[in-house]
């Protein structure tokens, strides 16, 4: 039964081998659960246009992960700091956007920039009050601080904004563009556009400005750059603020696309971590490509193997990559 399905599963012949393997795995799983029924066959008849669409959805959700992962990687690259509470800044960013929109009545896409500023300020406060004081000690203490910060941010958000889901309503709420058989929401496309613009601005900042040069210097040789007259403290503050601003932008974009509550931060953090590990710690192109790959792998796994496996497959990919390349796809060897 399964072999018949195989032939019309996917059009491009170069993917044939890949398909066959996916099918075998799928049938095996269904047999073990004793649920190999007729409709499972219909599942497998996914045409290539759906596949392209799936990849695009993966890329779209991947974009939000990319913003988060880039910020995380920036902070890691310059400060060698691992911030597990980075997703909380995304959550705070979404609520900042919500507050700005209700208070000032601005457009959601203008709120992205306002939220970036406000979240950056919060980021500075976090860096000054907590991470600054544990930096350079035992690395696990930093994780510990970020776990404490998760508790603090989650519960402050509940006390300030309530525990119920909220959403940010965009003026393009109802608009979508047809792409072949299925449609894609204008908001998704705008979000992708925003991410591209923000990333280009970021790359410009890092590559072309003096500040960016100082950041790169600090990230490569902290001690030496201090001797060269760079104020490391200021660079740290700026980097953390920049990372927080990216998370703030991601938060508002997330809020436009999904309902959000005080607990949304945890999951994107874990995914962002998986992404920077996959792409290579400290590598910004790695974070971008890793983010897109992760989003696509997750969606493709959900549509081919069955949704249950989406996390397991994403992490299996991560583990396999790390076993083959312990420093990640774009990480530097040695060190």
């Amino acid at each position: 039964m399964s072999l018949e399905v195989n032939s019309n599963f996917l059009a491009p012949p170069f993917l044939y081998f890949f398909n066959l393997r996916i099918n075998l795995l799928f049938i095996l799983v269904m047999n073990i659960r004793g649920k190999l029924t007729e409709y499972t066959v219909e599942f497998l008849m996914i045409d290539s246009s759906t596949l392209i669409l799936t990849i695009m959805w993966g890329a779209a959700i991947g974009c939000i992960y990319v913003l988060l992962a880039t910020g995380l990687n920036l902070i890691f690259g310059v400060m060698k700091l691992v911030n597990f509470a980075h997703g909380e800044l995304l959550m705070i960013g979404a609520y900042m956007g919500f507050t700005v929109i209700t208070a000032l009545g601005v457009n959601v896409y203008i709120a992205v920039f306002l939220s970036m500023g406000l979240t950056a300020l919060i980021g500075i406060a976090v860096e000054r009050l907590t991470f600054r004081r544990v930096l350079g000690a035992e690395k696990l203490n930093e994780i510990f601080v970020s776990l404490g910060l998760i508790l603090i941010f989650d519960n402050i958000a509940v006390l300030l904004w309530g525990d119920k889901s909220k959403r940010l309503i965009s003026p393009f709420e109802n608009m979508s563009i047809m792409l072949g058989e299925a449609s894609i929401r204008v908001d998704w496309l705008i979000a992708i556009l925003f991410v591209i613009v923000i990333l280009i601005a970021l790359l410009f900042l890092i590559k072309k400005t003096k500040l960016g040069m100082a950041m790169r210097a600090t990230s490569q040789k902290g001690q030496t750059s201090m001797l060269m007259g760079i104020n490391i403290e200021h660079i740290y503050i700026f980097t953390f603020a920049l990372g927080a601003a990216l998370a703030g932008a991601a938060g508002v974009l997330y809020g436009i696309i999904f309902p959000f509550n005080p607990y949304i931060g945890a999951l994107p953090t874990i995914k962002a971590f998986a992404i920077i590990i996959l792409g290579g710690l400290g590598s910004i192109p790695g974070a971008i490509i890793g983010g897109l790959l992760y989003g696509i792998a997750e969606q493709t796994a959900a549509i081919t193997l069955g949704s249950i496996w989406r996390d397991a497959v994403a992490f299996s990919v991560l583990i396999i990559v790390l076993v083959l390349r312990p420093e990640g796809l774009f990480g530097k060897r040695g060190e």
Binding site: F144, L149, I152, L159
Partner: peptide, 25 residues
């Protein structure tokens, strides 16, 4: 309309954890 008990408790726990690790690394 929100019973703040659990949230205040967890918030307090978070602050406690951060303070402990800052002062007693």
């Amino acid at each position: 309309g929100i019973f703040v008990g659990p949230y205040l408790r967890l918030l307090g726990l978070g602050i406690f954890l951060v303070i402990v690790v800052i002062f007693l690394p």
